[in-house]
Design a protein around this nucleic acid. Structure first.
Lengths: 183, 183
DNA sequence: ACCTGAACACCGTTCAAGT
DNA sequence: ACCTGAACACCGTTCAAGT
């Protein structure tokens, strides 16, 4: 059966999850799919486009918070699940950061985040800025934790990051933002 | 005259400034220095170590705010000059992000930032977290603006980022953080 | 001590030619 | 429409051998 774009993206996500960005190469991906490297370029314009698709796929899995909560709570919950989903995937911050710059509102989760910021009563002129601030905090925290993990694996002097502590640190930062937003 | 580690790092910074991370390759760097690629490995263990040195060099140029100001003002000023210095350098956020994860307090500028956070009266347990939040905001904003610039150059549909607007957006986010910190 | 030459095991991308 | 084979122009890193 012929290859499909969906299949290419799904296998790329799988490769990222299992081995990280360093092993997500067009040649490796082609091998995994049992085709020649050139075949991929019929389904995808280039690697950059593929990575944007991968980011969208990662974000598509994030559950949007149920309605009925106060917006501050929903926003915090969404930010936390965003972070939780991304820490599991090596180099997720790099991949999502790229996609976010290219198309900030491309995924449901990110649009929902912007909407919740709006609902907290932030003035219209600051809406996007605060949303960006939250996204930066998520991506920065994820990148930081993952990089500390890599550094610890390379150097036995360093202690590996404690997942619970990292989660707590993230929530402290998030609380600062929310406090600053609601006067 | 023999090559020196300082010379290698300085030329790497120059290459980054002029052409970005994509052209900062060990081979390109060697060519620029008029040596064989292997020669670099006598001065530097590997590319990753070189990039940490490059990040340190970029941060070393940032002026620490003069004493006498209220800490909130000094902190904001430092964050702004940090951002201003880094936006000028292509891919600076990636490079500095790496170094920050490996060694958060390695440079004067970043240690000063942590100190100023402390001076604003943030409880000791939250000091590092708030400092990290500010750094994430700086790096995220820089990466965002640079990526939007690249995207606009690739796709004429998109309008290029407005530097003044980006600076304003950054300051709005920063103000939110500072408001959240000072109750 | 410091560097060259040459190799090893890779990359992303293109494109004529095949089916 | 979809893919292969082969090439082009690169990578980071190692290491014997030279000076």
């Amino acid at each position: 059966m012929a290859l499909s774009r969906e299949q290419v993206v799904a296998t790329a996500v799988d490769l990222l999850r299992r081995y990280g960005l360093g092993d997500l190469t067009m040649r490796r991906l082609a091998r995994e799919l049992g085709v020649a490297p050139g075949a991929l370029y019929w389904h995808v314009a280039n690697k950059q486009e593929l990575l944007v698709e991968v980011a969208d796929a990662l974000l598509a899995e994030i559950a949007v918070p149920p309605p009925g909560q106060p917006p501050e709570e929903a926003l915090a919950g969404l930010a936390v699940s965003l972070r939780e989903a991304l820490v599991q995937v090596p180099d997720a911050a790099d991949v999502v950061g790229l996609a976010y710059a290219v198309e900030p509102g491309a995924t449901r989760a990110l649009r929902e985040l912007a909407r919740l910021v709006h609902d907290t009563g932030v003035p219209a002129s600051e809406r996007d800025k605060v949303a960006a601030l939250v996204v930066h905090h998520v991506l920065g925290s994820v990148a930081g934790e993952q990089n500390r993990g890599l550094a610890a694996r390379a150097d036995p002097e360093l202690s590996p990051p404690d997942p619970a502590g990292e989660a707590k640190a993230f929530e402290v930062g998030l609380a600062v933002i929310l406090r600053g937003v609601t006067r």
